[in-house]
Simulated assay, not measured.
Amino acid sequence: MELSEPQLLHTVADSVATVVVHHPAKRNAMTAAMWRALPPLLDTLAADPDVRVLVLTGQGGTFCAGADISTLRRSPEEAQGLAVRAEEALAAFPKPTLAAVRGHCVGGGSQLAAACDLRFAEEGALFGVTPAKLGIVYPASSTRRLVSLVGPATAKYLLFSGELIDAERALRTGLVDEVLPEGELAKRVGEFTRILASRSQLTQAAAKEFANGRTDRDAHWSAQMRESGDTAEGVAAFLERRQPRFTWSVPGRG
């Protein structure tokens, strides 16, 4: 397969999986095949014990310009269903996820970024949720996720108008967590993912469930904490002034 073809590329290095949306001919727009490919790829990476963090980004200077419009012309309902399944699979990824955004992050690109736990953007990035430009009903699950990030007023602004906002406004509204100067995004993402990879997966997995609304599993996570040994290791490392060596890992998906 030639690299000019639309596809999802991925690498794993230093406990970080990097998934790259690669469709340079259409500003990294997601084709139907790419939407379909994302959930099984995420399953594979979730089951990999060497992966502790996942970064989603786009090839070159664009994150993702949305869905390939040609797929919408053939069957908008099917295309939207594929996008929602991919978005939900990303949101359910059991380890920390971070979207590294350059350039346009629009439509389906915003869906993917919002489904990540964190979003870092380079100055000059532009964000938009554009179904109103196409007469599409934005999915309820995607709308709720957007509202949880930016609040009802900003979500309505984005959905009603389809207008793009810059990285600084995205930062103010909570759509983005950090904005980096041009040329500094990769360095900061590398630094931060190293921090995430060094922390307790037990803490991260429980916090992700709770933050995502799963609040009925206190007993489960308390048992995991007692059995894991991570707490004893963390306390010992703190007292001994060394880096902890946490051993609990997210169970593989059977």
Score class of each variant (00 low, 15 high):
Leu3Cys: 08
Ser4Cys: 04
Gln7Ala: 09
Leu8His: 09
Val12Gly: 09
Val16Met: 02
Val16Glu: 01
His22Lys: 08
Leu38Arg: 06
Pro39Trp: 12
Pro39Thr: 13
Pro40Leu: 09
Pro40Gly: 04
Ala47Ser: 15
Asp50Gly: 10
Arg52Ser: 12
Leu56Phe: 04
Thr57Leu: 02
Asp68Ala: 13
Ile69Lys: 11
Ser70Phe: 10
Arg73Val: 13
Pro76Cys: 08
Gly81Leu: 09
Leu82Arg: 08
Leu82Lys: 07
Glu88Gln: 13
Glu88Asp: 11
Ala92Trp: 05
Lys95Trp: 14
Ala100Thr: 06
Ala100His: 08
Val106Cys: 09
Gly109Asp: 09
Ala121Tyr: 04
Leu126Cys: 07
Pro131Trp: 04
Val137Pro: 01
Ala140Pro: 00
Leu149Ile: 06
Leu149Phe: 11
Pro152Trp: 07
Leu159Pro: 10
Phe160Arg: 13
Phe160Leu: 15
Ser161Lys: 06
Val176Asp: 03
Val179Asp: 15
Pro181Tyr: 10
Ala186Phe: 05
Lys187Leu: 14
Gly190Pro: 02
Thr193Gln: 11
Arg194Glu: 15
Ser198Lys: 08
Thr215Cys: 14
Thr215Val: 15
Asp216Arg: 04
Met225Ala: 15
Asp230Trp: 07
Ala237Gly: 06
Ser249Phe: 07
Ser249Trp: 02
Pro251Thr: 07
